[in-house]
Amino acid sequence: VEVSPDIYQQVRDELKRASVSQAVFARVAFNRTQGLLSEILRKEEDPRTASQSLLVNLRAMQNFLNLPEVERDRIYQ
């Protein structure tokens, strides 16, 4: 799965849209901590040159964001 270069903005938009914390998003989207998500968003590494471990996390976030909005909102509950 190709990771979109605007994945970082997509995540920020989703945090605002759903009014969820980084901690909640990190847990449900890719089963990691708020600290890691914060670092990923701060660095904004180009997905095309990202490490394998970062790509795994970015893909998981993208797959989560590809779910229908209704389903994502249900998962946040």
Rank of each mutant, 00 (worst) to 15 (best):
V1E: 13
V1Y: 02
V1D: 05
V1L: 06
V1R: 03
E2I: 15
E2G: 11
E2T: 08
E2M: 15
V3H: 05
V3P: 07
V3K: 04
V3M: 14
V3I: 15
V3C: 05
S4K: 07
P5F: 07
P5H: 07
P5S: 12
P5C: 15
D6Q: 10
I7E: 00
Y8F: 05
Y8I: 02
Y8Q: 00
Y8R: 02
Q9L: 09
Q9S: 12
Q9A: 08
Q9T: 14
Q9C: 08
Q10P: 01
Q10T: 08
Q10Y: 09
V11K: 02
V11I: 14
D13R: 15
D13I: 15
D13F: 09
E14C: 01
E14R: 01
L15F: 09
L15W: 02
L15C: 15
L15D: 00
L15E: 03
K16P: 00
K16Y: 14
A18P: 07
A18R: 10
A18M: 14
A18G: 14
S19G: 13
S19V: 14
S19W: 08
S19Y: 10
V20R: 01
V20P: 00
V20Y: 03
V20F: 01
S21T: 07
Q22H: 08
Q22L: 12
A23K: 15
A23F: 13
A23Q: 13
V24D: 15
V24F: 07
V24G: 04
F25C: 00
A26C: 05
A26K: 03
A26N: 04
A26R: 02
R27F: 05
R27C: 10
V28M: 06
V28C: 13
V28D: 01
A29R: 00
A29C: 13
A29Y: 00
A29W: 03
F30A: 06
F30D: 04
F30R: 02
F30L: 09
N31P: 06
N31Y: 06
N31R: 11
N31K: 15
R32A: 13
R32K: 15
R32E: 12
T33H: 14
T33R: 09
T33I: 02
Q34T: 10
Q34P: 07
Q34D: 14
G35E: 15
G35S: 15
G35K: 15
L36H: 13
L36Y: 04
L36D: 15
L36C: 14
L37C: 06
L37K: 00
S38A: 14
S38V: 09
S38G: 13
S38Y: 14
E39R: 05
E39A: 12
E39H: 06
I40K: 02
L41Q: 03
L41M: 15
L41P: 02
L41G: 01
R42Q: 14
R42V: 07
K43D: 14
K43R: 12
E44Q: 12
E44Y: 02
E44T: 07
E45A: 08
E45F: 05
E45S: 08
E45I: 12
D46A: 10
D46P: 10
D46L: 05
D46M: 04
D46G: 05
P47F: 04
P47D: 01
P47V: 12
P47I: 12
R48P: 05
R48T: 09
R48W: 06
T49G: 10
T49H: 14
T49S: 13
T49Q: 12
T49I: 09
T49C: 14
T49K: 09
A50R: 02
A50Y: 03
A50P: 04
A50E: 04
A50W: 03
S51E: 10
S51Q: 09
S51G: 11
S51L: 03
S51C: 10
Q52D: 11
Q52W: 08
S53Y: 09
S53N: 08
S53R: 10
S53G: 13
L54N: 08
L55F: 08
L55K: 08
L55D: 07
V56A: 08
V56Y: 07
V56I: 15
V56L: 13
V56G: 14
V56Q: 15
N57A: 08
N57V: 06
L58I: 08
L58M: 05
L58N: 00
L58F: 02
R59L: 12
R59A: 09
R59D: 06
R59N: 11
R59G: 09
R59C: 10
A60N: 05
A60E: 14
A60S: 11
M61W: 01
Q62D: 06
Q62I: 05
N63W: 04
F64Q: 01
F64K: 02
L65Q: 02
L65Y: 02
L65H: 01
L65D: 00
N66T: 12
N66G: 10
L67M: 14
L67G: 03
E69L: 11
E69R: 07
E69N: 09
E69H: 05
V70G: 13
V70R: 12
V70M: 08
E71K: 09
E71S: 10
R72H: 01
R72D: 00
D73E: 05
D73F: 05
D73Q: 04
D73S: 05
D73I: 03
R74K: 09
I75Q: 15
I75Y: 12
I75V: 10
I75T: 08
I75W: 07
I75D: 14
I75F: 13
Y76S: 01
Y76I: 03
Y76V: 00
Q77T: 12
Q77D: 11
